[in-house]
Write a protein that binds this DNA or RNA. Structure first.
Lengths: 195, 195
DNA sequence: ACGGTAACTGTCCGAACGGTCAGGTCTGAC
DNA sequence: GTCAGACCTGACCGTTCGGACAGTTACCGT
């Protein structure tokens, strides 16, 4: 019912995302955001209990997807886990380019958000690495896994002037090469439904 | 002549690095650093003209090496440029693990430091990517190059419990695989002298 | 008409923080 | 002895910013 296009809440989120991405989280004050949408700072704090809450709400969608991926991966093993993880992670990265950049550029601030998931970011990262490494404990495999994930992450954060299809293709082949995996076969629908 | 082990300047730098890495640049106040070494904040500001200057001085060594690498690369082309860039970048990353983590976690703050190089960070990054891509303009090559560099960067920032030799080997093979380059041959002394 | 509630705002406040300044102490040179 | 300069400090200041609060307006059900 409510026209989402003029809902102040959504407009505040949009402005906050834009400003956070361009000036950083700490570099953006509540007054900046309020001024950007043309409302009062008090009004902003009516919609969000505090500054962190804005960041949390912005990052929640990505957090949820990564969390869901993490759960899905817990049941997989070996090459299947690796392929699923890579495909899905690429998908998430592409679907949330701006948020990924926000994350990438503000790791220090984001990493101590209390309510993003139940889990700490490091925990999620470690389990992702574990999956991408195909559950191998060998240093080479762990490093390769971290490199693949880091590469996707960093590349997603740098806003390259390529369309999603090109980028997806390049990211996938790059990551699979890093992991020394056969890029020929597609994983059995890494993200069922939408991806 | 001056005992470097008790020079206040050096001790301040050491404390600042430790605190910046663990709590972030913005998350560390001048008072924190001063308290950590047990001197007054005023004394801290006697040694460094302002807070940024501390960060700049901490990052200067890395900046210089990257800058030197950048210059060396400008004369190389194709596969030679790529191999040199990768080898040297891995070397730098390993030699400055803590600083790389500082950089990685505080990109938003670091990216607007005025006096690090003459150049903006984006400029250096772009030219590094250009070299690693072997001067190719094809999207695939650019993405692969960015992934390789990002992977090395991210992996260097995550302080893995591996020794330098293991890490170096793993980083190199990972990056070269990402770039689809033959890992067999070592580049003709990528960093002459020490590396 | 009226009470309640959601949306919104002006104003104020306290804390944190970066930075300044006047001055104090020590040492070494002349 | 004294002058200069490096080193260090307590006290202070201005600003910025996140957040609290007491309202006010507008809408809606009854």
């Amino acid at each position: 019912m409510a026209r989402t296009s003029s809902g102040l809440h959504e407009r505040l989120l949009a402005s906050a995302l834009r400003l956070f991405v361009s000036r950083g989280f700490r570099g953006t004050s509540l007054a900046d955001i309020a001024a950007d949408v043309g409302c009062s700072k008090a009004s902003l704090l009516y919609h969000f209990s505090n500054k962190e809450a804005i960041l949390t709400e912005l990052l929640m969608p990505v957090g949820n997807e990564v969390f869901a991926l993490d759960e899905r991966l817990s049941e997989l093993d070996g090459e299947e886990a690796a392929l699923t993880a890579v495909h899905s992670f690429v998908g998430i990265t592409l679907r949330f380019r701006r948020e990924i950049k926000l994350l990438f550029d503000n790791l220090a601030d984001v990493s101590c958000l209390p309510d993003l998931g139940v889990e700490t970011m490091d925990g999620i990262r470690d389990r992702l690495v574990d999956a991408v490494a195909g559950r191998s404990a060998a240093p080479r495999d762990r490093v390769a896994a971290l490199m693949a994930l880091g590469g996707i992450f960093a590349t997603g954060a740098a806003d390259l002037p390529y369309d999603d299809l090109t980028l997806r293709e390049a990211l996938l082949t790059g990551a699979l090469r890093t992991l020394n995996l056969d890029p020929g076969r597609t994983v059995r629908d890494a993200e069922p439904g939408k991806n």
